[in-house]
Write a protein that binds this DNA or RNA. Structure first.
Lengths: 106, 106
DNA sequence: TTCGGTCATCGTCGAATGGCGATATATCTT
DNA sequence: AAGATATATCGCCATTCGACGATGACCGAA
């Protein structure tokens, strides 16, 4: 990837402007679907939620929900802990905080 | 705003949850491209900016930039005032505030 | 009026998104 | 072992996105 890890001072406060733009755009893209926003809200209420319960909440096919969860996970907004045959999804507060910080800095 | 006290959140501050999800998703979608984030930042620095200057800043074709501006305008995040043969684009603080509020409420 | 500059729109293209059912994989239960 | 449950992945399809050049529309200046 990038060589940007060497400067500890520019850790996550102010990278290059282009990098911040790309990061905010990437996080915003993860939010850019009502189903995914709803998942985040759901996980915010009951912290920790099994996948099949999310499928039940959204009125979408299981495969579709799985794809939305994959996108949220790839964006670092949620995480999934395997628990037997199921997966317990939780919010990643850091990722969400990062998103809020970038949005608030606009 | 309302004077209903801190508990009366289910009345007017939150419309329907689905509506808020859709609204946040719609605004996030407008942010979901680095060029559009960059435009917002540009307009935040120098409030009021001619279209051709935005074209010069982004390294994109004029038609592409125009499309990005159209998306931002449709989302209510910017506005354009016609000034002779050019258009002066500005941030819409209300729209931006709405986005920040919805994101912060996550 | 004609010219130059600014911006929006149109048509087109390739790539990505969002949806689904079907299938594969993994785990628990019996 | 067999069945049930939960999740991820695959293939497919329709739609949208992002980019561009070309064209059209508009205004101010020459």
């Amino acid at each position: 990837m990038t060589e940007e890890g060497t400067r500890a001072l520019s850790r996550r406060t102010i990278p290059r402007p282009d990098a911040a733009d790309a990061e905010l755009a990437r996080l915003a893209r993860a939010l850019a679907h009502p189903a995914r926003v709803r998942v985040l809200r759901l996980l915010a209420r009951r912290d920790g939620c099994i996948g099949c319960d999310i499928v039940a909440d959204l009125a979408l096919a299981q495969s579709t929900v799985s794809e939305h969860l994959r996108i949220l996970k790839a964006a670092g907004l949620i995480e999934g802990e395997v628990d037997g045959p199921r997966v317990c999804y939780r919010l990643r507060r850091e990722g969400l905080a990062r998103l809020k910080a970038l949005a608030a800095a606009l």
